[in-house]
Design a protein around this nucleic acid. Structure first.
Lengths: 228, 228
DNA sequence: GTCTATAACGAGATAGAC
DNA sequence: GTCTATCTCGTTATAGAC
């Protein structure tokens, strides 16, 4: 019984993994908008109706791929952060940024799935939120640790932004100043501006030594959130 | 003769415009990956083969839409720059940034077409390059004007980046320092990180007062390129 | 010359009967 | 789970209207 159940569960896990793997190949070849359950089934030698035992709909398969991608880049960021645990905060920051860039360049289609154009007709459910937050949380952690020392600097806020900043700090990191919280969210978005431009080809014919360029830009982002 | 030619030319312009308009509607509903010549023809009450008098292929229609979108956001940026011609440089900079953001929020699907995920199987030809450069050129112009005064500050470069920086400055703006050129390209990418996160929904449940947040972030980008 | 319509191709997706 | 009949697609060749 327990062995049979274990075997069944293992088989289910393996088929699920194979489905997601084939779907990721589809993603690369056709894009998320054209992800088709039938094509995935064909590639696996299954019949499309059999897939519904594993994913109740195309959208649920998409959701699983999205969560996997967020977890994958989030894990890469966390690994980089932990591997640089003893380095000074700016070095930890740039290590996380470079991990995100490396992951994106290695997985451009999954990057496009989570940080690119929304898929028409698909709306991500709340279950993606936790995984989507991991990279941001890794960045926040570095700044929080650094800010335990005496006051690091973040630029002052206009009056119109102060309530929003207080809310942001309360939501994201109650031990950070509102100024730091705003700077962090901006740096988070700007990091993906740099990565996205490179992955999506906007730097073609413009930036050539992208590695050095990114290192420089990431270090400047670190300064922007008060790390020295 | 000339009237007949004028009428023909006008009719051709009108049909071309109607095709692009219908294609943009398709873009919004189905996404660029699913843009279909037949659906466009159907919507216009034409037959699909008739479209080939106006666009030699589906990819050329896509290219036309991409160039139009780049020109549209580029014009918005240039208009904002010129309207703020008498304002101090940081105000001109933020005016251009806000014009880009406003355009993106008003045209999210065209934004996705040019700054979002690449369309699978489509590769943009060189004819898009000039239009794609307009926003960046508007930003460069502001910094160039401001840098005519005595030395504005851009952060120093690591040795590994200096050849790339010199090349960038030579390509983009020979009258700018390599440091300023690097800062400009980074700010350009980061601007679209901020805009893209908002348009693509990454700020949902995170940033609420997005207008004030963006104003602040754009002003800090201006500082990053040496504008005071 | 300029345009639209018909018909067809080869490839692929899809729905439903079995 | 299989098969088939009916869709869609981009694209071309051709014929005829203005």
């Amino acid at each position: 019984m327990s062995t049979a159940q274990g075997a069944r569960a293992r088989a289910r896990r393996e088929v699920t993994a194979a489905i997601k793997e084939a779907a990721r190949r589809q993603l690369a070849a056709e894009g998320a908008a054209r992800l088709s359950l039938r094509a995935v089934a064909r590639e696996l030698g299954m019949v499309s109706s059999a897939l519904y035992r594993y994913f109740p709909s195309r959208d649920e398969l998409l959701t699983a791929l999205i969560i996997d991608a967020y977890d994958s880049v989030g894990e890469a960021a966390e690994r980089a952060r932990d591997a640089a645990a003893d380095a000074p905060p700016p070095a930890r920051w740039t290590a996380v940024c470079e991990a995100v860039r490396d992951w994106a360049l290695a997985h451009p289609h999954e990057y496009a799935l989570i940080y690119g154009s929304p898929v028409p007709g698909y709306s991500a459910p709340d279950t993606t939120v936790r995984a989507a937050a991991r990279v941001g949380m890794a960045l926040i952690g570095i700044v929080r640790d650094a800010h335990q020392g005496p006051g690091l600097t973040a630029p002052p806020l206009a009056a119109e932004l102060r309530p929003e900043a207080a809310r942001l700090a309360g939501d994201l990191a109650p031990d950070l100043s509102p100024e730091a919280a705003v700077a962090l969210v901006a740096a988070w978005a700007q990091l993906f501006g740099l990565v996205g431009f490179e992955v999506f080809g906007q730097f073609n014919r413009v930036v050539e030594n992208r590695e050095a360029f990114f290192r420089h830009a990431a270090a400047r982002l670190a300064e922007g959130v008060g790390l020295r």
